[in-house]
């Protein structure tokens, strides 16, 4: 249920943007959910909607667009690329859950499937980010 904490950060960032850009209302927030973090879409959306009710006038009529972002990891040694789907097959339940809490834990529990290096990059699909905020 740490989806709530991340949802809260989205709304807090939206409020900050509204202040900075002098927006009276925020109409739409587009959010990317990176595959690596394995966020429960339904819980996250529910949390966003529930929290938005307590955020005051600016977020009263906000719409959320939530898009899934596929992951891509790339080995810095052999340049092989792979996805979390592929990585998941080698992980235990506890290891996958640890990555859910902190995506960088992938560097602890996973290796490049081609050369076994721990030195790889998360190219995309890490976690929760804001793609755009629209307001007036």
């Amino acid at each position: 249920m740490h989806e709530w904490a991340l949802a809260e950060s989205i709304l807090s960032a939206a409020q900050e943007t509204a202040e900075k850009e002098h927006l009276k209302t925020i109409n739409e927030i587009t959010i990317l959910l990176g595959e690596l973090q394995q966020i429960e879409h339904d819980i996250f959306e529910f949390a966003l909607k529930e929290l938005a009710k307590t955020e005051g006038k600016k977020l009263k009529h906000v719409k959320f667009h939530i898009k899934q972002e596929k992951s891509m990891l790339q080995c810095t040694r052999c340049e092989h690329t792979w996805s979390f789907d592929e990585m998941k097959k080698t992980l235990g339940i506890d290891e996958a859950e640890a990555i859910h809490f902190i995506p960088e834990i992938a560097f602890v529990h996973a290796r490049c499937p081609k050369c076994s290096s721990p030195d790889f990059d998360i190219i995309k699909g890490r976690g929760v980010s804001i793609s755009s905020i629209k307001g007036s």
Binding site: A5, L6, S9, F101, I102, E104, F107, H109, P118, R126
Partner: peptide
């Protein structure tokens, strides 16, 4: 501590990863 998630294994992070881990821990 991060050991709750690493299960006490080595954590070979680069700089940007460290920032992400700190941000995540502080945010959640």
């Amino acid at each position: 501590s991060l050991v709750f998630f690493t299960h006490d294994k080595p954590a070979p992070f680069r700089g940007g990863d460290i920032t992400n881990v700190i941000l995540e821990l502080l945010a959640i």
